[in-house]
Amino acid sequence: MATAAESSTAAVYSLFGDKEGLIGAVRDRAVAGLFRALAAAPNSEDPLADIYTLAAAYRRWGHGHSHLYSVLFGGVQSFKPSGVVGTDDPVRPLITAIDRAVTESVLDGEATAIAVSLWVTLHGLVTLELAGALDASTAEAAFRSAIHAMLRGWTAPAVLRSPRHDEPAP
């Protein structure tokens, strides 16, 4: 790392303390970048569309920052949600959108459980994509179907029974 930065190892360690400090700083940069990407996702009148938009933003960020994604989720000082969502926590935009969907009775469940379900789904998909296990068309189809299925699984029964707004009434 020092060579790539055209610096000495001693200079790098004087800035970060040790290897773990350097990795921690990179992890913090990754957390901040993921938060900015999710916080920038637009909101609409449709809470499910907003959650899907956040999922797509997570996926785009993972693809655009695969090196930082691997630092966050690759096992070396990986990001571990504390259970308490801070103001710049990358899951805050997701929790906010899910809370809104639960409040509006669109999703039925506890927001943290829904967020974990979405994160597990997204993480699996993005990790497989970054590893090259899925070609582009398969990955896109898997993303759409997995996110829609996950959201349907948490959708409130009354919403599932109501006529879809994009289908004409009989």
Rank of each mutant, 00 (worst) to 15 (best):
M1K: 14
E140I: 01
R144K: 07
A56M: 07
D88E: 10
A39T: 00
I114E: 00
A111F: 01
L48W: 00
A139E: 10
G64K: 08
L107A: 05
I114L: 00
T127F: 01
I23V: 15
I23S: 13
W119M: 09
Y69G: 03
H165P: 00
G86C: 13
A32L: 12
P93A: 08
A49K: 01
V102Q: 11
H67A: 13
L38D: 04
D88P: 05
P157V: 00
A133F: 04
W119S: 10
A149R: 10
L15A: 12
D46K: 01
G83L: 09
F79D: 08
L160N: 01
A56T: 06
A133H: 06
L38N: 08
H65K: 08
L122M: 14
W61E: 15
A142V: 05
A32E: 14
A56C: 05
P170W: 00
V26P: 06
A149Y: 02
L34P: 02
A41T: 15
G17M: 09
A146L: 12
A25S: 05
G24D: 14
I114M: 08
V84E: 15
P157Q: 02
T9L: 13
A101D: 05
Q77I: 13
H148A: 08
L22M: 13
G64V: 05
I98N: 02
T127K: 09
T138G: 01
S66V: 09
Q77P: 10
L122Q: 10
H123W: 10
S8W: 02
D135Q: 11
S70G: 11
G75S: 07
P90N: 05
G62D: 08
A158M: 13
V71D: 08
A2L: 11
A115Q: 12
H63N: 08
A11I: 09
D18T: 11
S8A: 11
Y52K: 14
R144Y: 04
L34H: 10
Y13L: 15
D135K: 09
E110K: 07
G75K: 12
S162T: 00
R60H: 12
A113K: 03
V106D: 14
H65A: 12
A37Y: 07
A113C: 08
L48K: 03
H63T: 15
T155K: 03
A56F: 04
A55T: 14
I95V: 13
A25I: 02
G62M: 12
V85I: 14
N43C: 03
H165E: 04
V84N: 06
H165L: 02
T87P: 14
I95S: 03
P81C: 03
W119P: 04
W61A: 11
Y13T: 15
I98Q: 04
R92K: 04
